[in-house]
Write a protein that binds this DNA or RNA. Structure first.
Lengths: 164, 164
DNA sequence: ACCCTATTGAGAGCTTGTCTCAATAAGGAT
DNA sequence: ATCCTTATTGAGACAAGCTCTCAATAGGGT
């Protein structure tokens, strides 16, 4: 790959996600796919993110680092990452999909403020258990779920009240 | 409105939803709106539906009945119906919004088969209660929610197993 | 080093939903 | 019943976001 420095260098070592990267590469090989520079760039970028992010921002982040990739490739490979379970894709009220890398064993859901679009995560093992029960009762083999509570956060509620 | 027969005639009397229609008309008047033929057509059509339906199918259903309406009007007035609480709008995994008229006091959620796209409704007061609690704990004033469990239904699971 | 073919990039294309603005019609006033 | 004001409508342009196409590129097996 030429004389450039390794892409996953210093600042935020991708080695921190070596287990996930292992999964990704194994998934690619098992399905007869190739481990390309673009795929690794996308992987690194999304695992560097700590918030929900959309495809276009991922695209621009990668370009900003001086790495080349096209929009089509970002979309195509996000699908791959979703398929192999490393990334979660959701519509959080807005028009576009938001992506986040999965923290294994940390199933969480979202509260979304319909005024400021702020997203707050929460964890509820009780709800997760109920969901599994419901799926079983209906003979469904559950793969994933989306629970999103949309409402008005305190800050926005106060702002609205003050304006009146 | 000319010599045409009443639009909400025989076959499936809209009078069955007179309470909801009352709410709609009151909502319109209170907000300085007008009760137009197009709005009533849309109201009737969506209350005739027993499944989730998208805006374009609603548009085509109304046209198929020989009633005129434009796409823009469908979209605009669906928003109105959502605002006054008579209709629920959700992204059930797919790309487009799906609409359903609200059965008062029957909050329900959805199981979606990722193979055949079949949607099954379920009711879980326990989950609803937990959701309210979570929203309160995070200082959110909850307005609506979406809970969707996506997986593989029994029929599709058996089909897959049989094929192997 | 060579070859086969999966993958990429650039841009066209599609889908879904929103906006614009002239024409129409609801509904209060007369 | 007619007039008048203005909300609403319809047709099509527009926009966002995502997917497809196809020639050029580059993994990675031999």
């Amino acid at each position: 790959m030429g004389t450039e420095p390794a892409e996953t260098a210093a600042a935020d070592p991708a080695s921190a996600h070596s287990a996930e990267r292992e999964i990704f590469e194994r998934y690619l090989r098992l399905s007869g796919g190739r481990v390309t520079a673009e795929r690794l760039r996308l992987f690194d970028e999304i695992f560097r993110q700590h918030e929900h992010i959309d495809a276009d921002r991922l695209y621009r982040s990668i370009r900003r680092r001086g790495r080349k990739i096209s929009r089509a490739t970002v979309y195509r490979n996000l699908e791959l990452l979703v398929d192999c379970g490393l990334v979660r894709r959701q519509r959080l009220g807005q028009r576009r999909y938001l992506y986040e890398h999965v923290h294994p064993g940390q199933a969480h859901d979202h509260l979304v403020c319909r005024v400021c679009d702020r997203v707050v995560e929460f964890v509820s093992p009780a709800i997760s258990a109920l969901q599994r029960e419901i799926a079983r009762a209906h003979d469904f083999d559950p793969a994933e779920h989306t629970l999103q509570i949309s409402g008005v956060c305190r800050a926005c509620a106060e702002k609205t009240a003050a304006a009146q």
